[in-house]
């Protein structure tokens, strides 16, 4: 194994631990509830985007329907708690497992589709599920489910007075998602995924099990996203189909990874740290009256970064010396 590679991985782990420790200390100094709220959302989207990145970034199967798993996680927890009194912790696990199973069941037909056909299938499946939930009376239909607040407790994972428990859970989730990615990056799966992304035909001929690689990535990705959905249901304590399964969640999971660097270890984290506070701040300071300024900032940023930095912002931190410019090839290409 490449020595520089092992060193880089070890450095990543140390940096991650260091950043997590700093993040954990931040609430000791920042007491403002509004800011804490933004921090919780940032960590949650970092975790979601990191999970999305496993299937779409590493394995190259671009999903714009991950809101499905987010919603399933949220609904499983909420339904089990309100209808059967099952504690959210078990609901969380159940939501994750159900989502992973559904991801594999959907992957079975969908992974045969290529390119845009696959992307549109993911959008369409999430949309169908959203419509079904909106018409499913037992699950509250379009009105959704109000999760009754008992009292502040880790047992029921409900806190009305402080945001801190949510903050630490979101931090833990982001760390787990990061660590899973870090760990898988250097496993058999990680190499398979990158091979599948770069050239599935070549990968297949070299003995990579392309189909099962995709299934594995989908299951891990869906499981983690569903945990995020369960967390969100507890955090906002009221869910309805549009607010947990709407297309905007699929988008908000993809964007941090795209901005930060798709298929990279740090991209989703970096993207979320920039994007989510920016969204929240523009929304509350400029776009408060629903005048669309937040969308303008957002859209402009997406265009600018995807054109100017297609490898994502994380490439700004890359220590690798840039390859020398190739004037000859440039001239031919243009």
């Amino acid at each position: 194994m490449d020595k520089a590679f092992i060193q880089r991985r070890r450095r990543d782990l140390v940096v991650a631990a260091f950043l997590a420790a700093i993040a954990a200390a931040v609430p000791l100094f920042v007491k403002d509830v509004y800011v804490q709220n933004i921090m919780v959302l940032t960590l949650m989207y970092a975790a979601l985007s990191q999970s999305w990145n496993i299937l779409s970034g590493y394995c190259g199967q671009i999903s714009l329907g991950h809101a499905l798993y987010f919603g399933l996680g949220a609904y499983t927890t909420a339904i089990l708690f309100t209808k059967f009194g099952v504690l959210p912790w078990f609901g969380m696990l159940a939501g994750g497992l159900i989502s992973a199973l559904i991801a594999m069941a959907l992957g079975y037909p969908c992974f045969r589709l290529g390119g845009h056909y696959f992307v549109i299938a993911t959008i369409v499946i999430a949309e169908i599920t959203l419509l079904l939930f909106q018409n499913w009376d037992w699950a509250g239909a379009a009105l959704g489910i109000d999760i009754p607040v008992r009292r502040d407790s880790w047992l029921t994972f409900q806190f009305t007075r402080s945001k801190l428990p949510y903050f630490y859970f979101a931090l833990a989730l982001a760390c787990v998602a990061w660590f899973v990615t870090w760990w898988l990056e250097d496993s058999k799966w990680g190499y398979w995924w990158r091979a599948v992304k770069d050239n599935p035909v070549a990968a297949e001929s070299l003995g990579v099990d392309v189909f099962n690689s995709k299934m594995g990535a989908a299951a891990v990705s869906a499981f983690l996203v569903a945990i995020g959905g369960s967390f969100y249901a507890q955090f906002v304590s009221y869910i309805d189909p549009e607010s947990v399964m709407g297309f905007q969640f699929s988008l908000l999971m993809a964007l941090p990874a795209v901005l930060g660097g798709i298929g990279t270890l740090w991209g989703p984290m970096l993207g979320a740290v920039i994007l989510i506070p920016l969204t929240e701040l523009t929304r509350s300071y400029i776009g408060g009256s629903g005048r669309g300024v937040d969308l303008i900032v957002y859209g402009g940023l997406i265009i600018a970064i995807s054109l100017a930095r297609p490898q994502g912002l994380v490439s700004l931190f890359s220590r690798k010396p840039k390859p020398a410019a190739q004037p000859a090839r440039e001239a031919v290409a243009s």
Binding site: G292, V293, L295, V297, G299, I303, S306
Partner: peptide, 12 residues
């Protein structure tokens, strides 16, 4: 991104 931008501009 263009879609989001255009929607924002229309709202504005």
């Amino acid at each position: 991104g263009l879609a989001v931008l255009m929607r924002g501009v229309a709202q504005y």
